[in-house]
Design a protein around this nucleic acid. Sequence first.
RNA 1: GCUGGCGUAGCUCAAUGGCAGAGCAAUGGUUUUGUAAACCAUAGGUUGAAGGUUCGACUCCUUUCGCCAGCUCCA
Length: 570
Amino acid sequence: MAKDLDALRHSCSHVMAGAVKRLFPKVKLGIGPAIEDGFYYDFDKEDSFVPEDLAKIEKEMQKIIKQEQEFKKEEIAKKDALELFKKESYKIELINNLDVKTVSIYRHGEFVDLCKGPHVKSTGEIKAFKLLSIAGAYWHGIETNPMLQRIYGTCFESKKELDSFIKFREEAKKRDHRRLGKDLDLFSIHDEAGPGLVFYHPKGALLRMLIEDYVKKEHLRRGYQLVMGPHILKSDIWITSGHYEYYKENMYIFKVDKEEYAIKPMNCPAHMLIYKSKVRSYRDLPMRYFELGNVHRREKSGVLHGLLRVRGFTQDDAHIFCLPSQVEEEIKLVIDFVMDTMKVFGFSDYKIGLSTRPEKFIGDPKIWDKATDALKGALSSKGMEYEINEGEGAFYGPKIDIMVKDALARSWQCATVQCDFALPERFGLTYTSKDGKKERPVILHRVILGSVERFIGTLIEHYAGAFPLWLSPVQAVVIPITDRSHDYAEEIFNTLQKENIRVEIDKRNEKLQYKIREQELQKTPYMIIVGDKEKEAGTVSLRARKEGNVGVVKIEEVLGRIREEITDRK
RNA sequence: GCUGGCGUAGCUCAAUGGCAGAGCAAUGGUUUUGUAAACCAUAGGUUGAAGGUUCGACUCCUUUCGCCAGCUCCA
């Protein structure tokens, strides 16, 4: 079924290109594939498309669809294709790069495109489509190539599916963490202080603390040791680590008293130095150093995105020093750790990628193969499905990436495990083996959440701001109805606070409805409403997020309910 | 960084070359309220910044900073 949908979308992209060609005959065609949520087509056009053009193009597409033009495939000789597309320089380039004698082309109406298909039978089969946006995109996705104009669209088998897709996008927009971050007063980012630098407001800082506390405890429980390094290190260290050569563009470097320092973009060197501070035995391994390491990277301005892509962030970073024979077992433990953690935070939708040796690499290819096999072995022993990203590994070792999907169905990398053959070499790390020889340990870099910032961003979108009770910055609000019940409300407030429940009291001179509305918008899990009746009977009126009015209960009941919900998380 | 769009009060937006405005929020009052927005009043602005065109610029032009949608890169 998915294949049919791809053909439909791909056909729709041809129809769009046909319409664009009719309206703007001078444009040159790039490529136009089906993608996960629809399709796009890249065009080279002198002046840029404007949003109004999308409506015009859609109208023209409707005409083509109405005419029920047949998609016709032809196999033609390469030289004939070169002649046919002689005005389409991008197509010429594609044809020249094909190592074949004949190429296939598809026609509908007057439009013809180099294409291997498949397509639907007729343009009339396209029932529900919509053009979504215009954006720039490099030819072949290479930064140094000319930038073409890409029109994104989507297409479904029915109007109903299209409508629900559009609706999903609107819903997703509402839970944008940047919007919710402001509405829920969690964090802010200030131009005047620097883009990509996050300020945590009291509720955001509390949320972060809760996450970090959990993560720290889990690491200690799983045999990691907590370490800490400084925020600035001399450039010499970055020369040793290789970052100075490979990563300088992204580093904040400065001079003090003729000595050059850099703000750390990564935590590795500190952990290397701690390892190196002593002679290590094979008996010590594996050693697992963990740090909530705050790093700064000068990311390109165009890539910054709320909390999901920032310039200063905190990684739940660990380096595992181990024997080559321990790699697979350690990776299995990391995968377990990741899966357990994702479950605790409520994520179930993720995708795993395994990146293999790139063209430029360091180390012995045999060790690479062994490490890659260890990664594969760990994944398959866990019965996990993964995609292989051929040649996408870092120059220093292969890696596993675990992506979590956000509300806009964008995948964000959270957890990653990377083998590293470079750093032990560069820092001259050794351990003494059984037979008394100096050997190199293998290093695994790994993060579980990835960056705390990014993780909070995805959490906000995942829960649409309605965090589970254990993560809610404010767990309950006591709302007195009139000032006659202020004393009683305070009594209740104190009772909850004594139980370590994060509670607030709203004594403002406002109507009950008004206060409730505000707390609903703040996604507060529990509202404890007290008026004359409750005061009289020694009860409270409980209102729960999602459920609405629960009714009149004893405060002990509320406490029990909250305690249970908090311990439920694991 | 690149392509395109956008930048007006704390927030959401209006004013298309001719007196910068509304709703919400804030503040002061009135109201003592029963499960998603009571009422009145007050205050709030070098229209992101700098320069230019013009009798006159939120509006047009240049530069710059930032944001947004993508591309490239990435935790």
